[in-house]
Every structure is written in structure tokens, then in C-alpha cells.
Amino acid sequence: MRAPIGTFDNARPAIDCLDLLTPSVVDALRGWSADVPVDQLIYVDTDPEIADTASFVEHHGRELLDQSANCVVVAGKRGAESTLAACLVQSRTRVDVNGLVRKELGARKASFAPRDTATGETGMEYGGITPIGLPTGWPVLVDAAVVDLPWVLIGSGRRRGKLIVPGKAFAGLPGAMVLEGLGV
């Protein structure tokens, strides 16, 4: 199978690669109910040493910067209450944490969740966090620019491997809210 973006040697339907994914991602793929058929989600094998965006696009091509998205975990706080959420923005942008995220979460303060919290709560590896398979009830804030892309390269839950997903699929994820201007 040829990957719809990039020049990856090993591309195949993610549903055929469950042994390479984290348990939460496996559960999400098995229970997939979005408008986009699950067999359209592609897994590509990649080197975990270059999983971070800058290294990845330097190795695989700068054009992927416009075709990839980062998923980050944020914590919104209001008094003693804390809400965890995921934000998905194009890799060439940054998340508007103190503006739009804070407002959407109804928080007084919002910040990136500590690494241990992000990995512990998601069950995913740092540098591979994906919006597919997040804990039930989490808000998933998705930049509208990501949804508009034909194909998007995202994490797979692990540092090794990436998923290539039709952009419109992110609007159908559990807890998804598509927002204009989330990535600035």
C-alpha cells in the first residue's frame, strides 16, 4: 500500500497493525464509528528517535509540516477543579492555550499538562500522543484547519509509528469540538 502523503516504505491500514498500537488506540479503532471508515486510517512505521516534529520533517521532508498535526494535553484550572483536554493543531502552529483553550474549558488558567500527567492519563508515549483513543469524557479541541486537510499525519500513541488520517475524521471523534483559530 502507498501512503497518501509522504514517502513511507511501510504503510498499511491501522486496523491491521493493532499489535503496534497502545491499548487505548486499539480500543478506539475496534469501536470506530466515525463517518470515515476505519480502514482509511493508515499506519506508517517510523523511527522513534525522530518522532518529534522538527526532526521528523527534517528527515521525511518539510512538506509534511503542512500535512501533520500535533496533539497536546492541556490542563484547565478553575479553583480546585482541573480539566484535562486534548488540542489538535497543525504542526506549523502552536495551541492558543491562554486564549481560546482557556475560554472553551471555562478555566481561569490553562497550561500544558505535565509530561507525567499527559502520558499517565492517556496511556500513550510522550511524543506520540494522538487524539484517537483518549480517555472517555475528555474534550478534544480540533483546529478547523486540521479538519480541512485531505490527509493528516499524527501520532500513533507510541513514538514509533504514525497514523495518516483524513482530516474530516477528527470532527467525528468522541468529545470533538472544531474551533477556528485554535492553532496560531
Rank of each mutant, 00 (worst) to 15 (best):
A3C: 14
A3S: 14
A3F: 06
P4G: 09
I5F: 04
G6V: 08
T7K: 15
T7S: 15
N10P: 01
R12E: 08
A14G: 11
I15Y: 04
D16Y: 07
L18I: 06
L21V: 09
T22W: 00
T22Y: 01
P23K: 11
P23N: 13
P23E: 13
S24A: 12
V26P: 00
D27A: 14
L29Q: 01
R30S: 09
G31N: 14
W32K: 09
A34L: 07
D35W: 03
P37T: 10
V38N: 09
D39M: 05
Q40Y: 00
Q40I: 02
I42S: 07
V44A: 08
D45M: 03
T46A: 04
P48N: 08
I50G: 02
I50N: 11
A51Q: 08
A51N: 06
D52P: 07
T53H: 02
A54W: 05
F56H: 12
F56T: 05
H59S: 13
H59V: 14
H59Y: 12
H59C: 13
G61D: 09
R62G: 01
E63Y: 11
E63D: 15
L64A: 12
L64H: 06
D66N: 13
Q67C: 13
G76W: 01
G79L: 11
G79Q: 06
G79P: 04
A80N: 15
E81S: 11
E81W: 00
E81F: 01
L84T: 02
A85V: 00
C87W: 04
C87D: 07
C87L: 09
R92G: 15
R92K: 15
R92D: 14
R92F: 14
T93I: 08
D96W: 00
D96P: 01
G99P: 02
L100S: 11
L100T: 15
V101T: 12
V101P: 02
R102L: 08
R102D: 08
R102Q: 12
E104M: 11
E104N: 13
L105K: 04
A107D: 01
R108G: 12
A110D: 05
A110E: 03
A113W: 02
A113H: 04
R115Y: 09
R115H: 12
T122C: 06
M124I: 05
E125R: 07
G127A: 05
G128Q: 02
P131K: 08
P131S: 10
L134R: 03
G137A: 06
W138N: 11
V140G: 01
V142D: 04
D143Y: 12
A144E: 14
A144G: 09
V146K: 03
V147P: 00
D148M: 07
D148L: 10
L149Y: 03
V152T: 12
V152M: 07
L153V: 13
L153S: 07
L153D: 07
G155R: 04
G155P: 06
S156A: 07
S156I: 00
R158P: 02
R160N: 09
R160D: 10
G161T: 03
G161F: 02
K162L: 08
V165F: 05
V165N: 04
V165T: 13
P166S: 05
A169K: 02
A169F: 09
A171Q: 10
G172H: 13
P174Y: 01
G175Y: 08
A176W: 00
M177N: 05
M177Y: 01
M177T: 11
V178S: 10
L179C: 03
L179S: 08
L179K: 08
E180D: 15
G181T: 12
G181S: 11
L182K: 06
V184T: 15
